[in-house]
């Protein structure tokens, strides 16, 4: 049984937001009006968080693309009273919309703030309705949603592999963000396969995980040269 994981190389990331847009298009992420956005109700399963370091004229910006961490020890699933969010045997933290009662315990429990509540029914301009991805359902008002590692792609990839009478290969299943990254900064695969790209990168000395000390054991692994915290000294 694979254990799906993502590796993001922050030294390669240019902060171009291609992953953000790819995610929104792939997963039918609803728009949020400026008024709602001002209330903190923006939905963005993938978000590029800028971190500005230093002061003018010696300013440096780092970018962290932040999807759901798909924790191996997820805080969000423990508080769900209805089993709408849970970790499946492949390590994916699932979110089952018809089960969700909208209590938002998971939203509060997630230390990475990747869970989003639908404050109203999603709306799209008429011209965009035909562009919605039929592989992903649109969420009704009153449920929580989050990055699923594009698991609808896994459903199709598994079926295709089965029809061709073979095992799932590396590259058969890749989320939209990883596929779209023009800098090649993102990798995806099976963490339990020691020969996979992600497993090899995860063993690198450059690897770290966000808020690792919380014990959430994220399966999104970041790579960066040198220390992560604090501005770097220049030679």
């Amino acid at each position: 049984m694979p254990r799906w994981a993502m590796v993001i190389d922050l030294d390669k990331c240019t902060g171009c937001q291609a992953c953000v847009i790819a995610c929104k298009a792939e997963n039918n992420i609803p728009f949020v009006s400026p008024e709602q956005a001002a209330m903190g109700r923006t939905i963005s399963w993938m978000e590029v968080i800028p971190i500005v370091e230093g002061e003018y004229p010696r300013v440096r910006v780092r970018y962290i693309p932040r999807p759901c961490m798909q924790c191996d020890n997820p805080p969000c699933t423990k508080v769900c009273p209805v089993y709408a969010t849970f970790k499946n045997e492949e390590g994916l933290v699932a979110q089952i919309y018809p089960r969700c009662i909208g209590c938002r315990y998971c939203t509060a429990a997630c230390p990475y703030t990747v869970k989003y509540f639908n404050w109203y029914a999603p709306q799209w301009p008429e011209e965009m309705r035909a562009c919605l991805n039929p592989d992903v359902s649109t969420r009704p008002k009153g449920v929580v949603e989050k990055c699923t590692f594009c698991h609808h792609r896994l459903q199709k990839a598994k079926e295709k592999a089965r029809a061709e009478q073979r095992e799932l290969r590396e590259g058969d299943y890749v989320p939209a963000c990883v596929q779209s990254c023009p800098a090649g900064a993102m990798f995806f695969g099976d963490l339990d396969d020691p020969m996979s790209t992600v497993a090899q990168l995860a063993r690198s000395a450059r690897a770290f995980r966000l808020l690792d000390d919380l014990g959430t054991e994220p399966k999104v692994i970041y790579l960066i040269e040198g220390e992560w915290y604090g501005p770097r000294k220049r030679a």
Binding site: N88, E89, I96, Y97, V136, S137
Partner: peptide, 8 residues
């Protein structure tokens, strides 16, 4: 019977 196998 994983929910994720059919729900999307």
């Amino acid at each position: 019977t994983d929910c994720n196998a059919c729900h999307r």
